[in-house]
């Protein structure tokens, strides 16, 4: 870990100003940042500690919906009564992630920004375009069990490891961002992450100094919500694949369906186009298969992760089956 300046801003304007300079990083829960700093995968020269900023509240919105402060911990969010009642998918996703200890520290904003678990990103002696732009991708041709089958590029095949973000993606969440200029802007989560392309080191639309202040969930819809996570051990492991589903069935046909997938792409993966196939249709195995095939149309394995293609396919079909049955 490199030495750094440690500052604790008293308010938002000071926070974004202090974080604007090159080499600055916000620290909230620190569960991923300090992990990476110890290995010098990340080496900020200034840590801006935002833990004492007033961002730890969950507030119901007058128009319906919930605004989740960026510093709300994963534990608090999972246990929040409104979340459990209206967005059970989110509680389930959070509870499927990490451990009790980590959830107590990890925050909503930090969880969105957690870095990939790619072995080579974590190894400073190996080339990695995400860590060192232009150095190459060691994962391609290497050990790829963890890696992406969708949305990857020739420059990076890393996956996004969050469970929470997958649920939020299916819930049409928006990310609230405070800029250095003091402007608050909102970005749909579906536009928040960038695909790697040839710039895998740029992972989100955030500009230097930008601070996530909260996540907004739209008013709950009457639908069945399911989060299914598949992993190598029963707990405390990252997803090999996961599926988040928000599905409503009315009078025997699917009214609305939103599905997002984790462990398979550089960002929580959602295919709006494929979702159109479901709306207005009667639930059937055949329909689910067609949907899964559409989602996986562009999927490409790297050898070690080829299994994720059939695994995701089966998981999608089973999740849709369960969701539509429960929603009847």
């Amino acid at each position: 870990m490199r030495p750094f300046d440690y500052v604790r801003p008293s308010g938002l304007p000071e926070a974004t100003r202090q974080a604007r300079a090159e080499g600055s990083a916000f620290i909230a829960g620190g569960t991923n940042l300090l992990d990476l700093m110890k290995l010098e995968v990340m080496a900020p020269t200034r840590l801006v500690d935002i833990n004492r900023l007033d961002l730890a509240e969950c507030a119901s919105l007058p128009i319906g919906g919930l605004r989740i402060g960026a510093l709300v911990t994963n534990s608090d969010l999972a246990a929040d009564e409104r979340v459990r009642r209206d967005y059970p998918l989110l509680s389930r996703a959070l509870l499927a992630g990490a451990s009790g200890q980590l959830r107590n520290k990890a925050t909503t904003g930090g969880n969105l920004l957690q870095r990939t678990r790619c072995y080579y990103f974590y190894d400073t002696s190996a080339p990695c375009n995400k860590r060192e732009p232009g150095s190459g991708c060691s994962a391609i041709g290497g050990a790829t069990r963890l890696h992406a089958i969708l949305g990857a590029s020739d420059h990076c095949i890393a996956t996004h490891p969050s469970d929470m973000a997958v649920a939020m993606q299916a819930l049409d969440a928006g990310v609230e961002i405070e800029t250095v200029e003091g402007i608050t802007r909102s970005v749909p989560l579906s536009d928040f992450y960038r695909l790697p392309g040839d710039t895998p080191h740029i992972e989100t639309v955030l500009e230097p100094g930008d601070l996530i202040t909260g996540v907004v969930l739209p008013a709950p819809v009457k639908a069945t919500q399911i989060y299914r996570k598949v992993r190598d051990r029963a707990s405390y492991a990252f997803a090999l694949v996961s599926a988040a589903a928000v599905v409503a069935v009315e009078n025997g046909t699917i009214g609305s369906a939103a599905l997002a997938f984790g462990g398979v792409a550089p960002r929580p993966w959602r295919n709006h186009h494929a979702e159109l196939m479901l709306a207005g249709e009667r639930p059937s195995e055949k329909l689910f298969e067609a949907f899964a095939d559409e989602v996986l149309g562009e999927a490409r394995g790297q050898g070690g992760n080829d299994f994720k293609i059939p695994l995701l396919r089966r998981t999608i079909i089973a999740t849709l089956k369960q969701a539509t049955e429960e929603s009847q």
């Binding site: 072995y119 190894d123 051990r233 707990s235 492991a237």
Partner: peptide
């Protein structure tokens, strides 16, 4: 290189296993 040289990726059984 042992790529899974940590407890996140070398999967010892956890309590739930």
């Amino acid at each position: 290189a042992i790529v899974n040289r940590d407890f996140a990726e070398y999967h010892l059984p956890v309590n739930a296993d």
